[in-house]
Amino acid sequence: MEAPVALTVGIVFGAGVYLVLQRNLLRFVFGLILISGAVNVSIFVAGRLTRGASPFVPEGAVAPPAGSANALPQALILTAIVIGFGLTVFAIVLLLRTYERLGTVRTDELPERLDDPRPVDRNGDAPAGAPRPRPMPQGGTVPRTGPSGTDARDDGEGAP
């Protein structure tokens, strides 16, 4: 039973690696999600597979019955899923913000946008001349104004 699951893990992992190697960072994040799923399943298999016996302690007993599933990998995976969930959401928020301020999520275009002196406006439009990205759905809300006064000081290229 372990072998086909292990094979599945390999295939999903491979698909994830393919996506991670893309220049588009959104695909990169999707790749990470696939890999993290594959890793979680591999931890599950590492605890060995058992069928039809959940590791619950029956009323009145002090230990789960013999032959029930290994509960530890499930606890590990739950923790890993929680962490992965948080990291993925953070990465997506970061990408969204990057897209708004720099106008691209392609790794090869990011450095050029950084040196572009023309500002990207807060609706995510690229500077004139640069390929215009598709507008993000705004839902009619006003974007929050960040502490823009601090940016010049911390951009590394701030002129004295």
């Binding site: 959401v89 953070f90 928020v93 969204l96 913000r97 839902g139 809300t141």
Partner: peptide, 13 residues
């Protein structure tokens, strides 16, 4: 708290 923080900060954009 964490889920709603993320959700609200996504909505702000």
């Amino acid at each position: 708290g964490v889920v709603l923080t993320m959700l609200f900060s996504l909505e702000e954009h």
